[in-house]
């Protein structure tokens, strides 16, 4: 393989990382703040994809625009609905089994919401076709997918916004405080429940946005969210649970390892290399490559 092909693969995989990063942010945020793993975000990714498909089919709305339109609705669902589900677990199992029970509960929610998707849209493969779906950008003799560039830039903007929100606003500071020390936050007068709700709202909005955006690059069915949430778990473990910058860097590493793995062990086993990397990270650095315990 020539150097130009390896360079092309490297650039292409970096751009693909945008997709993985976006889909991992909701898990990152919920884990960072509430210390629970919300796998049901996968179903919201799927819903985001189907809403993008529906709006594109009915009103010719671009998925990027749909992601902005749908985000407030999903925020509201997270704030009022999804949080209520989590709250029951938190209240009932606050004695120390929150993580285990949240996994079970949200896995159930994931299956239920995926079932709803089947009910409404059936199980057929869907795809969204935009004016730039097949477009490419020529860069030093390399053809780069325009859709991947759009997704990557979108991911950069979302990452920057999240970092700004968490570091430069009162709500963000309060969320970080809650994630680091719940009792001290309560003592300081922070409305902890409101911060939990807000975190869920943001997470659900991020998932729907990720779902809308992925339609630019992929055909999908109701299991697309389940596929992405598995990748998201790997990405967040590698990058650092509960850490946005870590998740973004984790996505970059995952995408590059996955791509180069295809060249080394073939496409059927490339994911094994990526998963082996996750196991190594878990053993050597359990908090992830860029993670610090209790930090968002």
């Amino acid at each position: 393989m020539q150097l130009i092909d390896v360079t092309f693969l490297f650039i292409s995989s970096l751009l693909t990382a945008g997709l993985y990063a976006l889909s991992s942010y909701s898990i990152t945020l919920v884990y960072g703040v509430l210390k629970i793993v919300d796998v049901s975000q996968g179903a919201l990714i799927t819903l985001g994809a189907y809403i993008a498909y529906t709006l594109k089919t009915l009103f010719d709305i671009d998925p990027v625009v749909t992601s902005l339109i749908a985000a407030p609705a999903f925020f509201a669902y997270g704030y009022f609905g999804h949080y209520e589900i989590a709250k029951r677990v938190l209240e009932k199992y606050s004695g120390g089994r929150v993580l285990e029970n949240s996994l079970l509960l949200f896995f159930g929610v994931l299956l239920a919401l995926t079932g709803v998707t089947y009910l409404v849209w059936k199980g057929d493969i869907k795809a969204v076709n935009t004016a730039y779906t097949l477009a490419a950008v020529e860069l030093f003799g390399l053809r780069i997918y325009l859709t991947r560039i759009v997704i990557f830039l979108y991911a950069i903007v979302v990452t920057a916004l999240m970092i700004y929100l968490l570091n430069r606003t009162y709500t963000g500071t309060a969320i970080r405080a809650v994630s680091q020390d719940l009792e001290s936050s309560l003592a300081c007068g922070i409305e902890v429940e409101k911060m939990f709700r807000t975190s869920f709202g943001i997470a659900c909005a991020l998932s729907s946005a990720a779902g809308s955006i992925l339609t630019l690059a992929l055909a999908f069915s109701p299991i697309i969210g389940i596929e992405f949430i598995l990748i998201a778990i790997v990405v967040t473990v590698v990058g650092g649970l509960g850490n946005f910058t870590g998740a973004f860097l984790g996505a970059l590493i995952f995408a590059v390892v996955d791509s180069l793995g295809v060249l080394i062990v073939g496409p059927a086993y490339a994911k094994v290399v990526a998963l082996a990397m996750m196991v190594v990270v878990l053993v050597v650095r359990p908090q992830g490559l860029f993670g610090e315990r209790g930090r968002v």
């Binding site: 092909d5 292409s12 073939g266």
Partner: peptide, 20 residues
């Protein structure tokens, strides 16, 4: 010849190998 896993998100490495 190659096998891929169903639901693959990025075929770029495979397509690069095919080109080669």
């Amino acid at each position: 010849e190659a096998f891929y896993n169903i639901g693959e998100k990025d075929f770029t490495p495979i397509l690069t190998a095919i080109k080669q």
